[in-house]
């Protein structure tokens, strides 16, 4: 309930009205949107029970490892009721052709694979928010100060997910496990996204915000 209450208001895309429509404009709109979404994720992390009790160094380590997985889950959750499009924001949806034209074909394919897996499972909003918190807690950063505190942080979220599934899906005792078994694909998809944005940055075609670059560098 706490995680559902703390869900941030969705961010809207803000395409530059002075730039004519083009593939570059699509990428610019996307990078700007994801940078603002990233700011939201950092603010949201502070409201996950247990996160703020971690040391600042560990909070940074978890976010630096898990931010893209959290962003991917935001996009996935918005796209669950769509069959063809990736819903980056209510006013910013991209289909396969648009992604291909913008050089995001690999990312489209990877995201669609993940989305269809969650669509088949009928992922609920409660599961989305819990998984989103879990990807931060479980981000496998190599440089944490207090692994015990992070383990405890993970255990609390794990317990919340198990409790929820026991009540909501009593007929499927494996549902928690099934959800946790989607995390490798989520990480793989996030890595694909990081690669994509690193490539865009190297190509220098799209300006990126400092925060987004800083977080990409941490990867």
């Amino acid at each position: 309930s706490h995680l559902l209450m703390m869900e941030p208001t969705p961010v809207c895309a803000m395409p530059d009205p002075t730039t004519p429509d083009s593939d570059i404009k699509t990428l610019m709109t996307l990078c700007d949107l994801l940078n603002r979404e990233l700011l939201v994720v950092i603010g949201w992390a502070k409201h996950i029970p247990g996160f703020s009790a971690l040391s600042l160094v560990d909070q940074m380590a978890l976010l630096q490892s898990g931010w893209m997985e959290a962003l991917i889950l935001v996009v996935v959750s918005r796209s669950l009721s769509f069959t063809e499009e990736l819903v980056f924001a209510g006013n910013f949806r991209l289909d396969r052709a648009q992604c291909r034209a913008a050089g995001l074909q690999d990312l489209y394919t990877a995201l669609k694979h993940l989305i269809s897996k969650y669509q088949q499972m009928h992922l609920s909003p409660e599961e989305v928010v819990t998984l989103k918190a879990m990807v931060l807690a479980n981000s496998d950063s190599g440089s944490v100060e207090n692994p015990e505190a992070i383990q405890q942080f993970q255990d609390v979220l794990h317990e919340a997910l198990q409790d929820f599934e026991t009540g909501r899906h009593p007929g499927d005792p494996h549902r928690t496990g099934k959800l946790l078994m989607t995390l490798p694909l989520l990480r793989q998809t996030a890595n694909r996204a990081v690669d994509t944005f690193c490539r865009l940055q190297l190509e220098g075609r799209v300006p990126m915000h400092k925060l987004f670059l800083e977080m990409l560098e941490a990867k």
Binding site: L39, I42, G43, K46, L56, V57, Q59, M60, L63, Q64, K210, L211, E214, M215, E217, A218
Partner: peptide, 15 residues
Amino acid sequence: KEKHKILHRLLQNSS
């Protein structure tokens, strides 16, 4: 920390 100063600042900010 110096390298990741924006994240550091955002986390220190209480809002």
